[in-house]
């Protein structure tokens, strides 16, 4: 049986027009997320994870342009939709949680009101019912004393509480797809686990597909079914979490793993990845954007990137995989 994925991103390219030139931030990116599946999008800072999410959501800022690709969601291409149709879907069918919950909430609006706004907008509740429904959502994300907290402003709540409010806003209308962009960065470890468990649990209950953006491979392995590795706007490898940990094939994935603290690796054995991301403004970017940092570089690497399937749902974009 071939299931239709919840989201299929194909051939997605995004450029930013800036004063210092055109930045080719995403280059023919493609990945799928099945219904009910949790997929991690990992890569170091600047690799284009957030831009991928923003492009799918249709909330790139004005300088960003999608130059090719499709994002198939529920039978239609998100990238081809008008802003109006997309706004109908956002918050109802596909939702997003951001890093930095404190700044991601309106500072001068009561949090219950902010949840109610989304419910009312998408027909999840009528205006008079909305406050009660908002309190129900607060209960769902396990905020103690929800009636009182609904009246609070974000500055009266802790970071972890604010992130729960964000989750309540995102899940208020039971979306089919949730994109969580580093939802736990900046929270302490205990709160991190609570938030991740909450997202996982609420997602499982409703069969929601989740994209979890992080640079923490350890967190990705713990909570996700599959991992997609990004480097400088390319997807270099995608594999089931276990397969990636057992048998990473792309040199970059292997370096990332070696840089991740875990049960097997002691802190002392951690390796940092040499070099940095290439300057994406260059006109003569190499076919493989990792080639400048790669120890396995050969002449073959100048050819356009291959897409090799090396195992069950395990793809790698490299001429000389490990």
């Amino acid at each position: 049986m071939v299931a239709i994925p919840a989201l299929a991103v194909e051939d997605l390219s995004v450029e930013f027009r800036t004063r210092s030139g055109v930045v080719k931030v995403l280059d023919h990116v493609g990945f799928t997320v099945e219904k009910g599946e949790t997929v991690a999008l990992v890569g170091e800072s600047g690799s284009g994870k957030s831009v991928t999410a923003f492009a799918v959501m249709g909330i790139l800022d004005a300088a960003g342009k999608v130059t090719s690709g499709r994002a198939m969601f529920g039978g239609s291409d998100l990238l081809a939709q008008s802003e109006r149709d997309l706004a109908e879907l956002r918050g109802r069918e596909l939702s997003m949680i951001f890093q930095n919950p404190r700044t991601a909430l309106n500072p001068i609006r009561r949090v219950g009101q902010q949840i109610a706004d989304v419910l009312v907008r998408h027909g999840g509740a009528t205006r008079p019912d909305a406050p009660r429904e908002a309190i129900k959502m607060l209960k769902k994300v396990r905020i103690p004393d929800p009636e009182r907290r609904a009246e609070a402003y974000p500055f009266e709540l802790s970071g972890g509480m604010c992130q729960r409010i964000m989750i309540a806003i995102a899940l208020a209308c039971r979306p089919a797809l949730l994109i969580a962009d580093e939802p736990t960065t900046g929270l302490d470890v205990t709160t991190q686990a609570v938030i991740m468990d909450l997202i996982g649990e609420l997602g499982r209950d409703s069969g929601m597909a989740t994209i979890f953006i992080t640079h923490d491979l350890g967190l990705a392995a713990e909570y996700c079914d599959r991992i997609v590795v990004m480097h400088a706007g390319h997807i270099v490898e995608s594999a089931p979490s276990r397969a990636l940990f057992a048998n990473a094939r792309h040199p970059y994935s292997a370096k990332l793993l070696a840089a991740t603290p875990g049960e097997t690796a002691s802190l002392a054995s951690l390796v940092s990845i040499p070099g940095g991301l290439p300057d994406l403004r260059r006109a003569d970017l190499p076919a493989c954007r990792y080639s400048g940092r790669c120890e396995r570089l050969t002449d073959a690497c100048a050819q356009p990137l291959p897409h090799k399937t090396v195992g069950e749902r395990h793809d790698v974009a490299c001429w000389n995989p490990l």
Partner: peptide, 16 residues
């Protein structure tokens, strides 16, 4: 700002 991006990501009407 971040919270306007949240508002847009929640699909709130442009006027709101």
């Amino acid at each position: 700002s971040d919270f306007v991006r949240t508002a847009r990501a929640s699909g709130l009407a442009p006027r709101t």
